[in-house]
Amino acid sequence: MRRDRSGLAAILPFLWLALFFAFPFLLVAKLSLSDTALAMPPYAPRIDWSQGLAGLKAFFAALDGETYARLTRDRLYLDAYLSSLRIAATGTGLLLLIGYPIAYGISRCPPAMRQALVMAVILPFWTSFLIRIYAWIAILKPAGLLNAALGALGLPPVDILNTETAVLLGLVYAYLPFMVLPLYAVLEKQDESLIEAAQDLGATPLSAFWRVTFPLSIPGAAAGALLCFIPMAGEFVIPDLLGGSETLMLGRVIWTEFFANRDWPAASAVAIVLLATLVVPILLFERQQAKVLRG
């Protein structure tokens, strides 16, 4: 048995992707071109295999872009789409502002402490995501922990549950590790002597940071930003639990179309539009990663 098996190893990821990404994607794409129907499953057309090739032809002839046209006619979809991107972008901005100092701080700690702090960043993952988001309801609700704390300090209560603020809070909280870890990875492996060289050549500590540390950490910031932006744009649980009815996000739209309206084609079409939008940042992310791996 001296056959070279590296070929098989290379096929495996493609097989995986074909089975769990390409095939479901094609199913969803097909669904988005179908029409709703009062049937089980609730869409038409379906391939009539008994007719053979003719059945297949009839099936393809019945597919159309009517659902997509419907998406453009209803303001709701466009609003949800724009608001999703806006919320994801705001969240990413906030995460950069909060995550960078955390990652930088950890990378400046002594090595033993760094490990403990990285552990602490990952620690929330040990609890169910859903429970952690539910906990935010308890904190933010009108008679919750936040208002109790504000009251104790003699400050007026705030009512932010079921608002976009609460959604952003939840997003930042939930995605912080995904921002901190890639940033930390680049900051931690940065050569200390580069900072020393900058200072040696007359740069103040602040200037050394802006001219050396920061530009060299941009790949990490880009990875973190994309890693957060992409799933946040399609996030469903956080806006559903913490957001109000006015917080429109595509994740909720998909859910509503699918489960409440039983409009599978519309849900699929929205999902396809979201995916098409995110392909650009996803490709950017891939290129960034390839660059990091190479260099």
Partner: peptide
Amino acid sequence: DPPHRRPVHMMFQAYALFPH
């Protein structure tokens, strides 16, 4: 005097050239 105010410059062992 902090390092950036000393008229003393160093050539580092691994050069520490700014890669960017």
